[in-house]
Design a binder for these strands. Structure first.
Lengths: 173, 173
DNA sequence: GTCTATAGGACGATAGAC
DNA sequence: GTCTATCGTCCTATAGAC
């Protein structure tokens, strides 16, 4: 992060990062499959938390309600990680290559959520639709939450899913 | 495509592609900013068609209805391109690097749609939510349409948006 | 003559093989 | 840890279009 802030992501070589970390370049690539990944290490508790939340959600909930519940359940984790996440986002936003990787990560998350829904017996295609929609709502919520964290993520999520319901529901603008 | 099918994407070098196309490697990179892009050239009519459809949609439509209309309007274009799209998808699915690029392209499309909505006066964040949701529905529709093209894309889209409404609307599964 | 497209050589960085 | 292939960029030169 020091190097990236000083000279930007593209202008920083893997070799420089390795040197700053006092390891060899080869060791760097043993820890990270490629250069971009240094910026995308995620909390190892995140995926299990989501999987558990989906698996343990009440039977009666609709797929989208499961998404709402699962995404709300990681608020504390995200809150904890915020100090690290925020500066990363600034670096990521400045580089197309990193933006691309970020989109891929988001898509992987969608796959994870969809898998969880399928294991609850949701039809494959519907699971994907619900997962994508859930992430769309999460993006809506997370964005406003990052700008102003005072109302919790849960509140933002409720607002997002409410907006979604309005979007989908009304037959006229 | 010949080379990719023979030996796969990763095992094919830019140099080989250039040779097969009877240009030099340098010329190849003048046409395509990077190796992946050869597989993602899109119909130049696609983006303008979407932009126009959004801009010209009736005032009364809700943001999501505008998405439904715009995405339905490109059916003929997609139909035309299907012979090229289908083999490409097979290659893309086989390579993580290409899958990543595909996700990035999808994200760009979301940005395009959101921009169109914003120009209709839709709030920035709501536009993004509607665009993401619209693309989620489109994915649902396109998948079943690719498996069996006989009922048109329009019908599939209606089914997808209907499924979405059910997902969002009902309070119980 | 100017503008654009291709060619060519050299080179740095990423990342894989061993 | 060493070695090397591949990607992708920079710079310059040449050939053709207008």
């Amino acid at each position: 992060m020091e190097l990236f802030r000083e000279q930007g992501y593209e202008r920083t070589t893997a070799s420089e990062i390795a040197a700053r970390a006092e390891v060899t370049e080869r060791t760097f690539f043993r820890y990270f499959p490629d250069k971009r990944e240094v910026l995308f290490e995620e909390d190892p508790r995140l995926q299990p938390a989501l999987e558990a939340a989906i698996a343990e959600a009440p039977e009666a909930l609709s797929p989208l309600e499961v998404m709402r519940l699962a995404l709300g359940s990681i608020e504390k984790l995200l809150e904890e990680n915020r100090p690290f996440t925020e500066p990363r986002l600034a670096v990521i936003a400045a580089s197309p290559a990193l933006w691309e990787r970020a989109e891929a990560k988001s898509a992987s998350l969608v796959q994870l959520l969809a898998k969880g829904l399928r294991q609850r017996g949701v039809d494959e295609r519907l699971a994907l639709l619900a997962a994508r929609t859930g992430i769309a709502a999460f993006g809506h919520a997370a964005q406003s939450w990052f700008e102003d964290p005072s109302p919790g993520l849960e509140v933002r999520l409720d607002q997002a899913f409410c907006a979604l319901r309005e979007l989908a529901g009304r037959k006229k603008g």
